Simulated scan of single mutants.
Amino acid sequence: MSRKKKFSVEDLYDQTHHLLMETGYDHFSFGLLADHLNVSRAAIYKYYSNKDDLINDYLTFEMKKFLTEFEELDWSEDVEEHFNQLFQLIFNYSDVHQLSTMFLQKLHIQGKQLKDKENISEILHEIMLGHIQSFIVSGQEKGYFKSSIPAPLLISMIFHSVMIEDRSGLTSSERAIFIREILAHGIFQSEERKQDEPEK
């Protein structure tokens, strides 16, 4: 099989994402990555000396994209639409969030540390958590959300909803819609909808 001589960093990151989602951290290797890029392993070593630095740079790249989209989003002043925007954005990057959590856990278990690397994960965590907290607290104060439910619990449920294990076969966009529906309206049908249903 012929080998391509050149590939872009974007190609490298795209295949890294694909393989991590497919095989997980433990089975991810430069050999496997080289096969999918149709290049030699030596070509990848010109960019990175180990897989941890590659994965970290890939996640940093994706998280910076998330932050840029977050900061440039025209947030609606309508509470429900703002809620929809928030969920959709979180779930658009659900793979990255899950991979980041997995990666950091693996490094912790193995006792590894990445030296001289920007901890974009912590920055992202603080910004998103701060935004959700401000949104929920303000919504409770204005009477949009139930004040009887502790704000920290609502904040945690929204922030960590992206980590719910997916066995539904739905797309991230579809999952965002349904999880938002569950959090906003629960799982029981309203009396109005019951009355609208035809009798069996």
Rank of each mutant, 00 (worst) to 15 (best):
Lys46Arg: 11
Asn50Phe: 06
Phe135Pro: 02
Lys106Phe: 02
Gln98Arg: 11
Phe87Lys: 00
Gly143Phe: 08
Asn84Pro: 04
Asn56Leu: 05
Pro152Ile: 08
His108Ala: 05
Lys51Phe: 11
Asn84Trp: 07
Gly111Met: 10
Ser40Phe: 10
Arg41Lys: 15
Tyr48Ser: 06
Ser168Cys: 05
Ile136Met: 01
Ser173Phe: 09
Ile149Ser: 13
Leu86Lys: 00
Asp95Glu: 08
Ser156Pro: 08
Phe178Trp: 14
Glu174Gly: 07
Val96Ser: 01
Ser121Ala: 15
Met102Ser: 04
Phe103Gly: 01
Glu80Met: 08
Thr68Asp: 12
Phe178Pro: 10
Ala151Gly: 12
Val39Tyr: 02
Pro152Ala: 15
Gly169Glu: 07
Leu67Met: 11
Leu89Gly: 00
Lys112Ser: 15
Gln105Lys: 10
Asn38His: 14
Asp166Val: 06
Arg41Gly: 15
Leu33Glu: 01
Ile55Lys: 00
Glu80Ser: 06
Ile109Pro: 00
Asp95Val: 02
Ser76Lys: 12
Leu154Phe: 07
Leu73Lys: 15
Leu73Asn: 15
Ser121Lys: 05
Asn38Trp: 10
Ser94Thr: 12
Lys117His: 15
His131Phe: 14
Ser172Gly: 07
Phe145Leu: 09
Thr60Ser: 11
Ser49Lys: 09
Pro150Glu: 13
Lys51Ile: 12
Asn92Cys: 03
Met163Asn: 11
Gly111Trp: 06
Asn38Ser: 14
Asp74Glu: 15
Glu81Met: 08
Leu154Ala: 06
Lys106Thr: 03
Glu69Lys: 11
Lys112Trp: 09
Glu62Ile: 05
Ser138Glu: 12
Asp166Pro: 02
Leu114Asn: 09
Glu69Gly: 10
Leu154Val: 07
Gln85Lys: 09
Leu114Ser: 09
His131Ile: 06
Tyr45Ser: 03
Lys51Tyr: 09
Ser161Thr: 04
Gly139Thr: 02
Met128His: 13
Ser76Met: 06
Pro152Val: 13
His97Gln: 04
Ser138Thr: 13
Leu124Asp: 04
Phe83Val: 01
Phe70Trp: 14
Lys51Thr: 07
Ser173His: 12
Leu54Glu: 06
Ser161Ile: 03
Leu59Thr: 02
Phe87Met: 00
Ile90Glu: 00
Pro150Tyr: 07
